[in-house]
C-alpha cells in the first residue's frame, strides 16, 4: 500500500483571497514576521500498489484530470 499526499494550491500570481484574509488576521494578532500566506488543500490517497513509479504516474493523471484545476492551481505529490 502506498500513501499519496497531494497538495493543491493556487498558482503563484493568482490572488489567494483566503490567504490574504488570514494574513490580515495574523497581523492583527501581532504576528508581524509573516510575509505572505497561501492556503491550499491536502488530499490523501491510499493506493493499492507497491510500485511507486506506477503510482506516481497514476496520481499525476488524477491531478491533471480532476484533483487540481490547472488553469488556476498547482499540485505537488509526495508518496510514502
Amino acid at each position: 500500500m502506498i500513501t499519496a499526499i497531494v497538495n493543491v494550491s493556487l498558482k503563484a500570481g493568482v490572488l489567494d483571497s483566503q490567504g490574504k484574509a488570514v494574513h490580515h488576521a495574523l497581523d492583527s494578532l501581532h504576528f508581524k514576521s509573516v510575509n505572505d500566506v497561501r492556503i491550499g488543500k491536502q488530499i490523501v490517497l491510499k493506493i493499492e500498489s507497491d510500485d511507486k513509479t506506477e503510482a506516481m504516474a497514476e496520481v499525476e493523471k488524477m491531478c491533471e484530470e480532476i484533483l487540481a484545476n490547472t488553469v488556476i492551481e498547482d499540485y505537488a505529490i509526495e508518496l510514502i
Binding site: 493556487l10 493568482v14 490572488l15 483571497s17 483566503q18 484574509a21 484545476n69 488553469v71 488556476i72
Partner: peptide, 8 residues
C-alpha cells in the same frame, strides 16, 4: 476558471 469571491 471561477475562484472564490475576492471578499470571501
Amino acid at each position: 476558471a471561477l475562484k472564490r469571491n475576492e471578499s470571501l
